[in-house]
């Protein structure tokens, strides 16, 4: 049986107390919430924190205040709580869809929104046991020198594999970070770094406490996820798209985010801009698709062939934009995602 390494376990009751512990313990300490990402990594000795600071006993991190003008989600909301809450279906369906498609029902009961946002980047050369990694003499992400995905790469190419990250970025989310030194708020986009190893701008002593969303009124959003099976699998490509439409279907604001195609979710700014002040006619979608898909440069470190993943990117952008426009995409969803999740709302 795989066993955890030894660790100290701390259960602060407040965010401030947690921040104090992190401050005192230094980078040897890690925050744990649902544990579904960290504990397997610890069993494989990818991460061996000396101290675990649990957020599970902190009250007030599991709330969801949804409002059309401004919303605030606690980082310890479980993904199941989001997937099961009908309020998320309106206005932020991309988040709802993303949360519903993470891993498995059991994991969604345990995993938290904050944990999924901060999910460790993934790579076929890294998500392996200590013994396996020893057989390749380790890699740039942990303990080694070479990135086996791109041998000459100066940085680690591990892949951002969060589902909710791209969805929340499309929704324009901001996050609140707490530390002993105080509180700061950054856009979610700014939380991510395009480096597989240093993939977050979060400092080790910071805790993601809340996620904030701006006005949702008039917005439609959707999330498309590529994976081999109907459950379990991390995304090997995802597309989140959101747009605010005028009453006659003209795009007033839009965001497109391509996930799992780099070490961070990629904002397709140019593609989103190309939609502005236009209706989502086929040629408009095609133009945006070309622009968005250009960003994706998948590498050979996830499931599926990389050139195929690249090819599917444009297909998924098209699907997402068509769904935003109001097309009934349920058949495509079932066919390519084995998904039971309904379409956009």
């Amino acid at each position: 049986m795989m066993r955890l390494p030894l660790f100290d376990y701390r259960t602060p009751r407040t965010v401030a107390e947690a921040a104090q512990i992190l401050d005192g313990e230094g980078p040897e300490a890690m925050v744990i919430a649902g544990g579904t990402d960290l504990l397997p990594n610890m069993k494989r000795r990818q991460q061996t924190p000396r101290t675990l600071v649990s957020l599970r006993r902190i009250e007030g991190l599991s709330g969801a205040h949804l409002d059309h003008s401004a919303s605030q989600l606690g980082s310890c909301l479980t993904l199941a709580e989001i997937a099961e809450d009908p309020r998320f279906r309106n206005g932020c369906s991309a988040l709802w869809q993303a949360a519903s498609m993470v891993a498995t029902p059991h994991i969604r009961n345990m995993a938290t929104l904050g944990g999924n946002i901060c999910l460790d980047t993934r790579c076929m050369f890294y998500d392996q046991s200590y013994e396996w990694r020893q057989a390749i003499n380790f890699c740039k992400k942990k303990d080694g020198e070479t990135c086996w995905v791109a041998n000459s790469s100066p940085r680690c190419m591990a892949v951002s594999s969060t589902d909710t990250g791209p969805a929340l970025m499309a929704l324009g989310a901001r996050v609140i970070l707490h530390s002993a030194r105080g509180e700061r708020e950054v856009t979610l986009a700014d939380l991510y770094n395009n480096d597989g190893r240093e993939y977050l701008t979060r400092r080790p002593d910071e805790i993601v406490s809340d996620i904030r969303l701006g006005p949702l009124h008039g917005w439609r959003s959707t999330y498309w996820k590529l994976r081999r099976r109907g459950s379990f699998d991390f995304p090997v490509l995802s597309v989140a798209a959101a747009a605010r439409f005028s009453h006659d279907g003209v795009v007033e604001e839009a965001r497109i985010v391509v996930g799992s195609a780099a070490s961070r979710p990629l904002v397709a700014e140019e593609a989103a801009r190309s939609l502005l002040n236009r209706r989502l006619e086929p040629e408009v979608i095609e133009e945006a698709t070309t622009l968005a898909a250009r960003l994706a440069k998948p590498l050979d470190n996830t499931d599926f062939d990389m050139s195929w993943r690249k090819k599917v990117t444009s297909q998924f952008v098209t699907y997402a934009l068509r769904e935003l426009r109001g097309d009934d995409m349920r058949a495509e969803r079932t066919r390519v995602m084995h998904s039971q999740a309904d379409g956009v709302s």
């Binding site: 544990g35 504990l39 675990l52 994991i107 345990m110």
Partner: peptide, 18 residues
């Protein structure tokens, strides 16, 4: 899988101390 506080969870990823 076991049921914890009414919900199915994976006991391999639940710390007993928790």
């Amino acid at each position: 899988a076991v049921i914890m506080d009414g919900k199915p969870v994976l006991s391999c990823l639940v710390l007993a101390v928790d």
